[in-house]
Design a protein around this nucleic acid. Structure first.
Lengths: 197, 197
DNA sequence: GTCTATAGTGCGATAGAC
DNA sequence: GTCTATCGCACTATAGAC
């Protein structure tokens, strides 16, 4: 008889999402989540610093991948290439298999202010990481900030479409679409050259 | 002998800020804040829904003033006029007397993630309010979003300068400066006509 | 104003992997 | 033996209910 089954963190994540859907975030206790996952409350806190975090663990990976992709770009690369790289890095965290889970998770984030709050903090941190990576690739501080904001804006629009019902297209595809829309909305030069590439 | 002094909410705000500075946010208890303000813990929660909120009460007023200023603009007014209006509305909440308090408050927000989190939520709400007000003045949805983001960006830069040590200029002045910088950074037409006004 | 549920922490004990 | 995940229990503070 084993003392503990592996994958406690994953079981806790699933149990939490299930219970949040069934009874709402407030009405779900950490003890209840732990119970369903077959561990004690104390073990929950070994894996997650607080109740909200159970739906956010892994968000550091998102930032790491995005900044790694940017860092892999050649020094002094054109801003548009850095945008492409950052988006590609982000897309890695959203394979098609993850879609159902992301959909359910997002529905919870939207309906619970406490979770929305945490989401904003994570996005803010992600933005900071991106700004740092972009600056390291030669972007000026204001350019890095604006570029990061553009990346997150595109990412956000694409993500919302990605989790729509019946959506079949991949995150990468939807990001390309949203980026094209943003470029079109902004107008100006610098775009046509890219398209001919 | 009076049973209670008026201005309990204000006293609680000051007491909280004092204690957060002295012992840190986590180490400060609501009971301690209430004590210093001369009320009971229960009274604290009558004024503020939770511990974090003690530094945020009044943020609705910020949104109200900004959207009121936008709503006062003529229907179909040029976007740049709406930006000016929104900024003017925001500046009302930052008279020079408030500067020392804002400075201390911001230092706490920056140093405590739990407070930063709440700040981001408030800014997100403010942005939503602004988008609504701008849309009501005839801006398209994407335009309203981008305009609101630009307003908040200018506001943010100006606010950071406003709370710098030895800063003498008013919030309104600093916002004008930051707006000019943003316009310059974005380049393009539509700016010179305004300046000649 | 009092009472209570629950979030979250600190610390020691324990079981299994290596 | 060490290392790591878990458990158990006592405890404080937040926040809401009565």
């Amino acid at each position: 008889m084993v003392r503990w089954q592996p994958g406690a963190a994953d079981r806790l994540r699933i149990a939490a999402l299930d219970l949040f859907e069934e009874h709402g975030y407030d009405q779900t206790t950490v003890a209840g989540i732990a119970d369903r996952a077959g561990v004690t409350e104390r073990t929950f806190y070994r894996h997650f610093p607080d109740k909200r975090e159970v739906l956010f663990a892994g968000s550091e990976q998102l930032a790491e991948r995005a900044s790694a992709a940017v860092s892999a770009a050649p020094q002094g690369a054109a801003p548009s290439l850095l945008v492409d790289a950052a988006l590609a890095g982000l897309a890695e965290s959203f394979p098609d298999e993850r879609r159902p889970f992301s959909r359910r998770r997002q529905a919870r984030l939207d309906s619970e202010p406490a979770l929305r709050e945490r989401e904003l903090l994570k996005l803010s941190t992600l933005k900071g990481t991106l700004v740092g990576a972009l600056a390291a690739r030669g972007a000026s501080a204001p350019a890095a900030t604006m570029t990061a904001e553009a990346v997150l804006s595109v990412f956000h629009v694409a993500f919302l479409r990605w989790i729509e019902e019946d959506q079949q297209r991949s995150m990468a595809e939807l990001q390309q679409e949203a980026l094209a829309e943003l470029r079109a909305a902004l107008g100006g030069a610098g775009t046509s050259a890219e398209e001919g590439r």
